[in-house]
Design a protein around this nucleic acid. Structure first.
Lengths: 242, 242
DNA sequence: CGCATCGTTGAACGCGCTCAATATCAGTGG
DNA sequence: CCACTGATATTGAGCGCGTTCAACGATGCG
């Protein structure tokens, strides 16, 4: 896929040539020179589902761009209860600037590929380029909006509304170009039942029961436990509590 | 209270002289000249409890600094169910940059005083002063951390743990200098029971029952429904689910 | 005084949890 | 091929936490 090309022809490092983060991600804030400097110390990795990317209370010395796959952000109580507090999709930026330690855990929910760079490199560029900080602020504000939306779901919605809301949210994120007026979609669930439960503040059993209820009511179809088809998005939305 | 003083003596506008936002708030990012420019179009207001500061889906053309009091950020479902998705304390910045409409509702929970400025003025300064955006990014990241902490509380804690967590969070915010090793504090609850319920995803009755339980267990004392004294912070923390 | 707001307390119900059994599938090795 | 294992998911039965509905108390204000 990747074509060999002289760096100097475009000024953009080979690593970054076809990288989506250069367009919609934070790297779009950088000029060719900054990209080149950053690319020297950055590297791509492919990660299996379940692998921890950032450990709780662990010193973080890397930031990353998520290039493909889904990453779940989790927090845990001392007795093991767990809550997923965010999902990240490509081309999100992974990492918590201005704090030495991360208070949350980031784990690959699906197969994932990331581009990571040393923390110091990013922070240096941030100082000299306000545009990078601007993009980070925008992403952070969006994440805050999403977090607050989920607080409503967690605090005030019933189990069936939670599951419907979850499916809608996934559908919109897997297929960002999804027309709001579209009436059907299908997608692969990036999370297993246990993760969905941890995301919605429910148990596995309740998630399963609500999914089968949606299925027997004809709102969705499920194949191989993962592939979901929504034939009537409006009906699903009506069940999400709006 | 406010003393008349020649602006040129210090270069700092009278309005801002004794303003806390100039130290810990976003105005600390501005130099005397920028402050002077901003002060021309800004104004202080005192607001009664219950008054709406930013309406849902309403066009926002003002940003504000919260100077005193507590503001609650709420979101509602179409059938009236409500969730408080954040509390703001002085000297927080109020407003959602980069979006014409606010998706949330901001309402004074206590008596509140704010300093508001036209949206355009802030956005102009933001373009020329990266430091302002830097402070906003920091506040937004902190709010995101808090939101995610509450997602754990909403999704995974029991009613009694929720109430204990709430009291601890209030104690820490009312008295930011509260020594973590301190064993007692007392404070006024900035929220009535209905608000606490909306914050914790519970009903008024459950909040009331959990508070009386904490009281009869000797963990807290309550006077006039509002003044809470915690004699043993460690005991309260043990009940918060960590 | 009446009225409104806020808070507490009680009784009964029901949603979602807990515990347990069963199903399904992939991988692994005989 | 079957047997075995482990991970994931579904389904059932019963229970308990938090809700719902209702009554009552406390306080402030006209």
């Amino acid at each position: 896929m990747t074509m060999r090309q002289d760096i100097h022809s475009s000024g953009i490092p080979v690593l970054c040539q076809s990288c989506e983060a250069r367009h919609r991600g934070v790297c779009g804030a950088l000029d060719a020179e900054q990209l080149a400097g950053l690319a020297k110390t950055s590297s791509r990795h492919n990660v299996e589902p379940g692998v921890e990317l950032i450990g709780d209370a662990e010193t973080v010395d890397n930031y990353s761009n998520l290039l493909s796959g889904v990453v779940k952000l989790t927090k845990s109580l001392s007795d093991g209860r767990q809550q997923i507090v965010g999902l990240q999709f490509a081309p999100d930026f992974l990492g918590r600037p201005f704090k030495a330690e991360s208070a949350i855990n980031a784990e690959a929910a699906t197969a994932v590929s990331v581009c990571s760079f040393p923390k110091a490199a990013i922070e240096r560029i941030m100082k000299e380029s306000p545009e990078l900080e601007h993009r980070l602020l925008k992403q952070t504000l969006n994440e805050l909006d999403e977090a607050r939306d989920w607080m409503v779901t967690l605090g005030r919605k019933s189990a069936s509304e939670k599951v419907a809301s979850f499916l809608l949210m996934i559908a919109r994120n897997i297929d960002p170009a999804l027309d709001p007026s579209a009436q059907s979609t299908s997608f692969d669930l990036p999370l297993i039942r246990a993760d969905i439960a941890d995301f919605l503040g429910l148990t596995i059993e309740t998630v399963s029961r609500q999914l089968t209820r949606l299925r027997s009511d004809g709102v969705i179809r499920i194949e191989n436990n993962r592939e979901v088809t929504v034939d009537n998005l409006t009906r699903l939305q009506r069940r999400s509590g709006v």
